[in-house]
Amino acid sequence: MSDAGSRGKRVVIADDDDDIRGLMTIAANRAGVDIVAAVDNGRAALDAVRSGDVDLAVLDISMPGLNGIEVAEAIRADEQTKGTLILMVSASVQLLTTHGVVADRSDSFIVKPFSPRVLSTRIREMLDLEAPA
């Protein structure tokens, strides 16, 4: 990791699809971050973000319980967690576009299907990490 000496970047991943979540985890690992939690619902994602010092939350929009947008709103509303970066992911272009709120409530978003390579790069860019050697 580039910022040796400081702690590793902490990331929470949330997607209700096991395979996609697995893909996100691999991409995040390749970006060289610490994965605090990889969960399948919004409530667990919010709990994970609140439980520790999390730098980035990668959130799928369509999730059971709390959806990605609601989780993002809760993170932003909480003084303790509002500094956490949010990367929103969705398979529905419509959801990303028609809600409009996505742009305001996230720092970046990405449409499924995504390339693990691109997701990895995006995570590094957001967290100011350099590419692994």
Partner: peptide, 24 residues
């Protein structure tokens, strides 16, 4: 349409993502 789009794109995301992992 939104639902169909979502339901078709999700498995395609897995297929394309894992194929890419294999290639890389």
């Amino acid at each position: 349409v939104g639902l169909i789009s979502h339901e078709l794109r999700t498995p395609l995301s897995s297929i394309l993502g894992y194929l890419e992992l294999m290639r890389d």
